Simulated assay, not measured.
Amino acid sequence: MRTILNIIWLLLAGLWLAIGYVLAGIVCCVLIITIPFGIASFRIAAYALWPFGKTVVRRGDAGVMSAIGNVIWFVVAGLWLAIGHLFTGIALCITIIGIPLGIANFKLIPVSLLPLGREIVSTGDPRAFA
């Protein structure tokens, strides 16, 4: 079932979201100081491309720099990305077939708000239950 949902997601929303996150990552990597934001954007792009069967967990080694980076990310991009995912998720939930896709869009909100200090893992990974 996960594979079918991922294929439908890829065709309807995932490809476009991933392209957007990759472009944002490339722009962020232009300046040296924003490279961590670019790397986070590339991780979100991979998650946005194939979200079913994956989840986001906190990294235990994330420190103060991740928190500061998350505050900057939230102000510059995170809030707007989360609002976009919220409205897209609501629009996808209008149809019965779109409900799982809308829920996947809602799953992207926390990582789009605060991506630093997070890790995307398979739902079968033991860290997914911690």
Score class of each variant (00 low, 15 high):
residue 27 V to E: 12
residue 112 S to P: 00
residue 77 A to P: 06
residue 125 D to I: 04
residue 31 L to G: 07
residue 57 V to P: 00
residue 67 A to S: 14
residue 64 V to Q: 09
residue 2 R to K: 11
residue 56 V to I: 05
residue 62 A to C: 07
residue 126 P to G: 03
residue 82 A to V: 15
residue 76 V to Y: 06
residue 23 L to E: 08
residue 128 A to T: 09
residue 78 G to Y: 05
residue 53 G to C: 00
residue 97 I to A: 14
residue 77 A to F: 13
residue 62 A to E: 04
residue 58 R to C: 10
residue 5 L to R: 08
residue 64 V to F: 14
residue 107 K to D: 12
residue 70 N to H: 08
residue 15 L to Q: 09
residue 109 I to D: 08
residue 65 M to S: 15
residue 94 I to R: 07
residue 19 I to R: 13
residue 30 V to C: 15
residue 118 R to V: 05
residue 14 G to W: 04
residue 128 A to M: 11
residue 114 L to D: 08
residue 104 A to L: 03
residue 96 I to S: 05
residue 64 V to Y: 12
residue 99 I to M: 08
residue 41 S to Q: 11
residue 130 A to Y: 10
residue 62 A to T: 06
residue 102 G to L: 06
residue 26 I to T: 13
residue 17 L to F: 11
residue 89 G to W: 00
residue 17 L to P: 02
residue 54 K to T: 05
residue 77 A to T: 11
residue 117 G to S: 09
residue 5 L to D: 05
residue 114 L to Q: 11
residue 110 P to T: 01
residue 55 T to I: 03
residue 86 L to Q: 02
residue 125 D to P: 05
residue 109 I to T: 05
residue 122 S to D: 14
residue 23 L to G: 06
residue 58 R to K: 14
residue 28 C to W: 15
residue 102 G to Q: 04
residue 46 A to E: 13
residue 22 V to G: 02
residue 69 G to W: 01
residue 94 I to L: 15
residue 71 V to M: 11
residue 10 L to F: 15
residue 85 H to P: 11
residue 8 I to Y: 08
residue 61 D to V: 08
residue 61 D to F: 09
residue 94 I to S: 01
residue 16 W to H: 07
residue 45 A to S: 12
residue 94 I to Q: 06
residue 66 S to L: 02
residue 16 W to Q: 09
residue 102 G to I: 05
residue 125 D to A: 12
residue 25 G to C: 03
residue 129 F to W: 11
residue 129 F to S: 13
residue 26 I to M: 15
residue 78 G to A: 08
residue 23 L to W: 13
residue 54 K to P: 02
residue 26 I to Y: 11
residue 2 R to I: 15
residue 87 F to N: 08
residue 37 F to A: 15
residue 73 W to G: 01
residue 48 A to K: 03
residue 96 I to P: 07
residue 40 A to T: 02
residue 116 L to Y: 01
residue 76 V to A: 14
residue 88 T to F: 10
residue 111 V to N: 00
residue 72 I to K: 04
residue 112 S to W: 03
residue 119 E to V: 00
residue 108 L to P: 05
residue 126 P to I: 00
residue 117 G to M: 08
residue 119 E to S: 11
residue 95 T to R: 07
residue 118 R to L: 13
residue 74 F to R: 10
residue 120 I to G: 07
residue 29 C to Y: 10
residue 115 P to I: 03
residue 30 V to W: 13
residue 113 L to T: 01
residue 57 V to Y: 00
residue 52 F to E: 02
residue 88 T to P: 04
residue 35 I to V: 15
residue 63 G to W: 07
residue 59 R to E: 12
residue 38 G to E: 12
residue 113 L to I: 05
